[in-house]
Amino acid sequence: MKRWLWWPLALGLALAAAPVHVVRPGETLYRIARTYGVPLEALAAANGIADVNLIRAGQRLVIPSEPSWPADWGLAVTPWPPEQGRPAVFRVPVGVNAVRVFQLEVPVARGVALVPVPADTRPGLHPFVLEGAGLKGELLVLPGGYGSENIVLSEEKNALLDREKIRAEKARLLEACGPWTAELLGPGPWRWPLERVEETSAFGTRRSYNGRPGGWHGGVDLRGEEGTPVYAPAAGVVALSTELYVRGNAVVLRHGLGLCSGYYHLSRRAVEPGQRVAKGELLGYVGATGLVTGPHLHWEVRLLGQTTDPAAFTRPDLWQALAPARAAGR
């Protein structure tokens, strides 16, 4: 088959996997193109628009989403485009020692930086700098597609919503997670901490409590009967094993590269601070301690202090992109 006959098929396959934007009242094609960092002409061509002034509210536009920086930089970002609340792996050129983005400076280990994309990051273009190489570009971030929920608390549980105590607990968790280290303590992909995986509340869900806004859900809630064993999803060091105000009986593991994971509302804890654990080792048991409405496991992952979708670390593609850093951390 002649090469030119493949072009419509290749374009169609690429656009089928591309993100989609639904036009809002008052939006222009120019503004949408600028938001997603794509040329106006490319956006029009991808959607068969002959007149760039004629779009309508509710129209679905496919966004062609190739990176905007020059190919000769030698920069690759996985996944592309990244999404709110999920980590991105930057494979950077020689000489780059850090990636500065989202008001964070992420160190590079063996040519790779594991970058958190905060869950409240605005979708669209964000500037980044490759420190050590003097290169500046723009990173496209897509919406995470998060839902919302209202949690009804009893008067007793509602009384626990003390903002000062919540802030103090968060500070303690950040301290437990510790500083960034170049060593990754074990390979991935991670496993789920329960043998039976059933999500009852997804990461990133925008929450309210008794009708009052309460931010987003910083972890994954997994259904489990009281006493269900909880296992380490990856090798790590126990940074915290104690009882907390909101999270109840808690265990926190450090994994390296600025990664730590937390296991909350436990009925009992089975590890002590400073203990090194292997993937699959028992951490404790599901419970209903702290600020909860019933027994479950709240699994939380932080990357450089930012809560990040735990499910992302169970997927092989993330670890394939991390391979250079992973190999040195074995």
Rank of each mutant, 00 (worst) to 15 (best):
M1S: 15
K2Q: 15
K2P: 11
K2D: 10
W4K: 09
L13H: 13
L15A: 10
L15I: 03
A17N: 07
T28S: 09
L29G: 02
Y30G: 15
R34S: 00
T35V: 15
E41D: 10
A45V: 11
D51N: 08
L54Q: 05
L54S: 04
R56Y: 15
A57M: 11
G58H: 03
P81E: 04
E83T: 15
Q84M: 00
R91T: 09
P93S: 03
V94H: 14
V94N: 15
A98E: 07
A98S: 05
V101D: 03
A113N: 03
L114K: 09
L114N: 04
V117R: 11
V117E: 04
P118M: 05
A119H: 13
G124T: 11
P127T: 07
F128E: 05
V129F: 15
G134N: 09
G137C: 00
L139M: 02
L139D: 11
G144S: 08
G147Y: 03
L161F: 08
E169C: 13
A182P: 03
A182D: 05
L184C: 08
L185H: 14
G186R: 13
G188F: 02
P189Y: 03
L194Y: 02
E195W: 06
E199S: 14
R207A: 06
G211M: 07
W216I: 07
G219H: 00
D221C: 04
R223G: 03
T228S: 14
P229F: 12
A235R: 06
V237A: 10
A239I: 02
T242C: 14
V246C: 15
G248E: 01
N249T: 09
A250F: 09
V251I: 13
G256N: 00
L257F: 06
C260W: 06
C260H: 06
H265R: 04
H265Q: 02
S267E: 04
R268T: 13
R269D: 09
V271H: 10
E272Q: 05
P273E: 05
L282F: 00
L282T: 01
Y285I: 00
V286I: 06
T289I: 10
L291D: 04
L291C: 08
W299P: 01
E300Q: 11
Q306I: 13
P310V: 11
A311E: 07
A323W: 06
R326P: 14
R326W: 05
A327F: 10
R330P: 15
